[in-house]
């Protein structure tokens, strides 16, 4: 689904030229500072060290590796995604802060590659989360990785790389695909629906029969709010 059906419309703030300059500046900074979380699922991971170290040096583009999903901007999936792994990939993706981007490296993420016939491998990554960029190849060389990253940087700068919103706006679609794979009881500790509500990212596709199914069995995951609790009833002893 992703954003193919939607024609990307770049909404610029009208009127205040300072705000436009500011937005431009922020987009530029976003494109020049990318923290990668590489989820090394497969053989593609081996191409990343040369891309980072002295031969190709990602850091000159402002790209550096990070450790936890909270800190990262880019989720880099480097190879085939087994169904077990996919659960973790989805959790990791949901834990990242937006704007966030997903890059699928290697053919396996595009269509399952040589694992096409495997029962235990998710074939197309973009059925489960919006993917910004595929770098095909088995495996792509660091030059290709860097070229892909530069392409992503351009898209971020121009404001086109906003597929992360798609995950909120079409959550029902992604959740449906996830439920198809993991069963009806599928639930991550993250709560996308309240997040979409919190950030006002709700669209027609956010809710649907899949989210209904989720809400039926979802264990409550509201944040633990600070409270004095003096109005609570005395617990029975």
């Amino acid at each position: 689904m992703s954003s193919i059906k939607q024609i990307p419309v770049i909404t610029e703030r009208k009127g205040n030229p300072l705000a436009r300059v500011f937005d431009e500046f922020v987009r530029f900074c976003r494109s020049r500072s990318l923290f990668i979380l590489h989820y090394c699922t497969g053989c593609g991971a081996i191409e990343l060290p040369p891309a980072m170290t002295s031969r190709f040096d990602m850091e000159r583009l402002g790209i550096q590796p990070m450790v936890s999903p909270r800190q990262a901007d880019i989720l880099l999936i480097t190879g085939y995604v087994s169904i077990k792994t996919l659960k973790r990939v989805i959790l990791t993706y949901e834990q990242m802060g937006s704007p966030k981007y997903v890059i699928g490296i290697c053919s396996c993420t595009v269509n399952g590659g040589m694992y096409w016939q495997s029962y235990a491998t998710a074939k197309k990554l973009d059925e489960y989360m919006p993917v910004d960029l595929y770098i095909a190849g088995c495996m792509p060389r660091p030059e290709a990785v860097l070229a892909g990253l530069q392409k992503l940087m351009d898209r971020i700068h121009s404001g086109e790389a906003n597929s992360w919103e798609d995950y909120f706006r079409n959550y029902d679609y992604y959740l449906g695909n996830q439920q198809k794979l993991f069963g009806e009881n599928w639930q991550t500790p993250t709560d996308i629906i309240t997040e979409a509500k919190h950030y006002d990212l709700i669209d027609e596709g956010t809710f649907g029969k899949h989210t209904q199914l989720l809400e039926q069995h979802q264990k409550p995951l509201e944040a633990l709010d600070m409270r004095l609790g003096h109005d609570l009833k005395e617990p029975t002893e």
Binding site: S68, R88, L91, P189, T190, E195, H198, L221, A223, L224
Partner: peptide, 18 residues
């Protein structure tokens, strides 16, 4: 930007579901 309060189980555990 704004931040969202999350439940303590929505936490980094190397991809593990807490």
């Amino acid at each position: 930007g704004r931040s969202k309060r999350v439940h303590q189980l929505d936490n980094y555990a190397g991809g593990h579901f807490l």
